[in-house]
Write a protein that binds this DNA or RNA. Structure first.
Length: 499
DNA sequence: TAACTTATTAAAAAC
DNA sequence: GTTTTTCCATAAGTTA
């Protein structure tokens, strides 16, 4: 896609935005001064934190789940559902008593998050400082990564080159490979921030080497950005949006087009954040909760998501339509992942107590039969292929982390691990690092457990006095070996780096 | 098989 | 510093 030429209107608009930013910057001097006097009073280092503008604060502090009639959702009455919606996310869950008497009037911002249409980034924005710096940073990275997109035709040639995975990774936007020294991973004060309020369900690094930007989704439907290396004069580099009205279940970034990022929500909507158009577009609006989201690494036009009780759908970016849904599980699908070396091979984990491996060429044809079904005693919270594809790691509520290897993943090792996170902490999901050596998983004692595939046990635990809460969700930076983001139920993000 | 009930737990806010 | 509130998720067990 060639960069679009700006119309006169767009050019004027950008100029106007820039002017407004200058005015804002001038105004900010006052708040900077007051901050300065405050910091002399309190010499202790304040961690970076999101700051919601006062006039927006009251609107979203209390998350409200609204009743949605078919009419307000713009859906024609349907005899099959007219007798009362019994779907996963509607009246049954929405009508839970609301204690706050002030929350009865629908706030404009919450209403917007429900809209069956695009929401401008401006309308969804909650933080007080301008988000121009963030938008510029993302567009800047996007332009740079697009330059390397022209190398994509090399993809096929490189695919056969087993010996040079690093070259392959860089050219096709795949995760970079490398080994790490576990003892070298450290958490520094400036790599800590409270990015959003409340419980984080998802953390993701933008897939770029040009900036370190972490994105998180929380249970209120907020999407928070943290530009980790933002200059001090740009504030903390933390930006908060509210594009969804309910918990965010997935974030999917396109390494070839950083300005496009998908987010999915428990209310059944999937939005595409388009930084170029400054919109959260609505790409899918279903009647069932969307619990998981994933992109096939080699096909950015296909978006896979799990909805309702075990259904899987594929949304096609070219047609803007989704496939019919395939019933792959009995209960909700918690994760969807693809084998990096053969993206026809997909794995799903489910609350029905199983993790399955599928051949996409055979899914949906005459029903769906899994290549392999892994059975845990309880709900399976995640299933991920290792970077080489030779391992599969599952994490289950039965207090086990499963490691599977061999041609058909027939070799099983169960590693005991306390996964009882309870009500307040998001369930643990063991993720892979940058090679097949380690799986990273949260620890109820405020640490990150590292499970070694060779040792078949927890060989180390990352701990730090800076970590004031339990890390439950993680992301390994796709292009920076050893850079690990961990997120908590209090909205914090901790970034571990090799020292 | 669906519908209802209950146990689980940490962190922030309030005192 | 200690106590209270948050809270309204989730999964598993029990009942009808």
């Amino acid at each position: 896609m060639a960069p679009q030429k700006l119309t006169e209107y767009e050019r004027l608009r950008l100029e106007n935005i820039k002017r407004n930013d200058q005015i804002l910057a001038a105004l900010k001097i006052h708040s900077k001064l007051s901050q300065l006097s405050e910091s002399t009073k309190r010499p202790r280092t304040q961690t970076k934190s999101y700051k919601v503008s006062p006039e927006k604060k009251h609107r979203t502090e209390t998350p409200i789940v609204l009743r949605r009639s078919l009419r307000t959702r713009g859906v024609a009455p349907d005899s099959s559902t007219a007798g009362g919606l019994k779907d996963d996310f509607d009246e049954t869950q929405s009508s839970i008593s609301r204690k706050n008497p002030n929350s009865d009037s629908e706030s404009p911002l919450t209403k917007r998050a429900y809209e069956r249409g695009p929401i401008s980034m401006r309308d969804a924005y909650r933080t007080d400082a301008s988000d121009r710096k963030l938008i510029e940073a993302i567009l800047d990275c996007s332009r740079k990564s697009r330059l390397s997109e022209s190398n994509n035709e090399l993809d096929d040639t490189i695919k056969g080159m087993e010996g040079n995975e690093l070259l392959g990774s860089l050219k096709v936007g795949r995760k970079v490979w490398g080994s790490i020294d576990v003892d070298a991973l450290k958490l520094e004060q400036n790599n800590i921030a409270r990015v959003v309020p409340g419980r984080i369900l998802n953390v993701r690094f933008l897939p770029t080497t040009d900036a370190r930007i972490a994105v998180v989704g929380n249970k209120f439907g907020d999407v928070g950005f943290w530009n980790v290396d933002a200059d001090a004069e740009d504030g903390d580099g933390i930006y908060l949006y509210h594009p969804h009205p309910a918990p965010i279940s997935g974030i999917a970034c396109n390494p070839f087009s950083l300005s496009k990022m998908f987010t999915s929500c428990y209310n059944g909507f999937i939005r595409l954040m388009d930084t170029e158009r400054e919109l959260f577009e609505l790409v899918y609006a279903g009647d069932h909760a969307v619990f998981s989201l994933s992109q096939s690494p080699n096909d950015m036009n296909s978006l896979y998501f799990g909805e309702g009780n075990g259904q899987l759908r594929v949304w096609d970016a070219r047609t803007g339509k989704s496939s019919s849904s395939w019933g792959l599980h009995q209960k909700r699908i918690n994760t969807i992942d693809f084998k990096p070396q053969n993206t026809n091979i997909m794995t799903t984990s489910s609350t029905d107590g199983t993790a399955c491996i599928w051949d996409l060429r055979k899914v949906g044809v005459n029903g769906s039969t899994a290549l392999k079904t892994i059975r845990h005693e309880r709900a399976v919270h995640s299933a991920y292929f290792s970077p080489s594809g030779r391992f599969l790691a599952t994490t289950s509520a039965d207090d086990m982390v499963g490691l599977f290897s061999g041609d058909t993943y027939q070799n099983m090792t169960m590693v005991y691990h306390n996964n009882q996170t309870g009500r307040w902490i998001s369930s643990f999901r063991g993720i892979w690092g940058w090679d097949d050596s380690y799986v990273f998983v949260g620890n109820m004692r405020r640490g990150v457990d590292i499970i070694s595939t060779t040792g078949k046990d927890v060989t180390a635990t990352l701990q730090s006095e800076h970590m004031s809460a339990i890390p439950c969700r993680f992301d390994a930076h796709p292009f920076e070996v050893g850079t690990l983001a961990s997120a908590t139920s209090g909205g914090q993000v901790y970034i571990w780096r090799p020292s």
